[in-house]
Amino acid sequence: MDIFNFFINRIETIMKLTSQHFFMVLTAMIISIVIGVIVGILITYNEKAAEVVLHITKILMTIPSLALFAILIPIFRIGATPAIIGIVLYTQLPIVRNVYTGIKNINPSIIEAARGMGMSRFKITFKIKLPLALPVLIAGIRTAVVMGVGMGAIASYVGAGGLGDYVFQGIQRTNDKMIIIGALMISLMAILVDRLLSLVQKRAEKKLS
C-alpha cells in the first residue's frame, strides 16, 4: 500500500504531467490526422505518388523515435514543438496507409454511380469516399494513438514534459514507485483511448453493414 500512498501524496504532480502528456499527444494526433487524411486522399489519384509517399512514411517509422527527436532539436530547439512534430511524422504511416487502402477498397461501382449522377469530386470525397473508408481510417488512428502515447513518454528527452518526466526521474533516482506509476499512467492512457476509439469504430462499421 506504500505505492498507493505515494500516489495519493503526489497526485497533483501526477495529474499535471498526465494532462500535459494527454494534450501534447492530442495536439499531435489532430495535426497528424488532418495531414494524413489529406495526403491519403490525394495519393489515391496517382499510383506513382502513392508508392513514393507510402514508402517515405514507412521509412519515417523505422527511425528510432529517440533519433527522430534528436534530429529535430537543432531545427526546433527543445520543448513541445519538436515533440509534437516528431509524433506527427512518426504516426503518418498508419493514417495515410489506412485512408489510402480504405478508399481504394471501396467497390468501384459505388464511385462510378456517384460520378454518373453528377456529384462533384469534392462531394464524392466527403460524402462517399471518406464515410465508406471511415472504419479503416479509425483503425489506423487507433494504431497511431497508441504509438503517439508511447512516443509522448520519450518526448520528455526534448523537454516536452509529460509522464516521461516521471519515469526518467524515477530511473535517475532509482525510485521504483515513480517508474511504475509513470509507466502505468501511460499504459492506462493508451488503453483507454484505444478502447474508446474501438467503440467508435464498431459504430462506424455497423452503419456500413
Binding site: 459505388i110 454511380a113 456517384a114 460520378r115 454518373g116 449522377m117 452503419k207 456500413l208
Partner: peptide, 21 residues
Amino acid sequence: NPVDLRRNIGYVIQNIGLFPH
C-alpha cells in the same frame, strides 16, 4: 460540363452501386 450533363441523364449502373452508408 460533365457534372451538369450527368445531372440531367438518369443512370442505372451495371452493378446497381447503391451507397451502402
